[in-house]
Nucleic acid binder design. Structure first.
Lengths: 149, 149
DNA sequence: AGATTTTACCTTTAATTTAAAGGTAATTTA
DNA sequence: TAAATTACCTTTAAATTAAAGGTAAAATCT
């Protein structure tokens, strides 16, 4: 399925705010609301739109600590980890990557105690490196500014 | 502002699908739709809800390459970078972190050529390390499974 | 303690939005 | 060239939202 200019325009709005109504998007891109709904449905079905997520400030909600943790898995421990990681509520995002480390994760924690507990859970799987996030420079939103090619 | 059990329940649904209607959420958590709307509004105002983002499969939309890039900024080049990075459409996410590197970014690119072009843009700011993402193990969604404390 | 304010919900109702159905013109396919 | 498909449209019923006004419980003040 192709993403034409109109679809990029729709995605741009949905990226900006996933709760915009089809009617509102339609007004902006020059389509009727059923037409927008139809296009969105197709992009969902094609897997281009994977979902709609709410961005939560864990900080404001009491989860004060964000960290990036890399994992260099021990022999034979990568697969078990890949299974187990799905259960870790602290893990916001996790990628398998190339390079010296196998895994990179974004985790959200209440405090240092919580971080320590979490790292303890990881040490059976491999060697970890932790980087505390100082601030978020760019947010998901910035992308697509004019990716309408 | 406090996030009580009801609010976590609401956040859980919105996390799962940011386009759920207030009416539907209300049915599930046992509130009227105006009550849900009011609670959501308050969480937005308090900054607990930062926004609603659509998750796009860049892969399916033609952006085949995802990478994690770290940057160790040259003397005096971190600030200019922090300003400039906001303009890079390729950057999905960017954090300032502790450790040997100053910056970690998640970037989305069409192909290797695009990656090369992008890295060229970074080299004036510092030394980079690139990790190609092989697969996404955990998605944003998994979190909050039962963070309703 | 008692009075007052605030909060968190409710219901009702009007305006808006969505979903479904059916139609049409333009493009694609056979 | 004919048939099928596509991408949109309009219309309309059902659902949702937003706004208003009300109430009971909890919190705050005197």
């Amino acid at each position: 399925m192709q993403v034409d200019e109109l679809n990029w325009a729709i995605l741009l709005r949905l990226q900006e705010n996933a709760r915009y109504s089809f009617a509102e998007i339609g007004r902006e891109v020059g389509l009727s609301s059923p037409a927008v709904a139809e296009r969105v449905k197709k992009m969902e079905d094609a897997g281009i739109i994977k979902g709609y997520k709410t961005q939560i400030s864990y900080h404001k909600a009491g989860y004060q600590l964000k960290a990036i943790i890399t994992l260099r898995a021990f022999m034979g421990r990568l697969k078990p980890f890949l299974e187990k990681v799905k259960e870790f509520k602290e893990v916001n995002n996790c990628y398998r990557i190339t390079g010296n480390e196998n895994i990179i994760m974004e985790v959200v924690l209440r405090d240092q105690v919580h971080l320590e507990e979490f790292i303890d859970k990881l040490i059976t799987y491999g060697e970890t490196k932790t980087h505390i996030v100082l601030s978020q420079v760019v947010d998901f939103a910035a992308i697509n500014k004019s990716r309408v090619k």
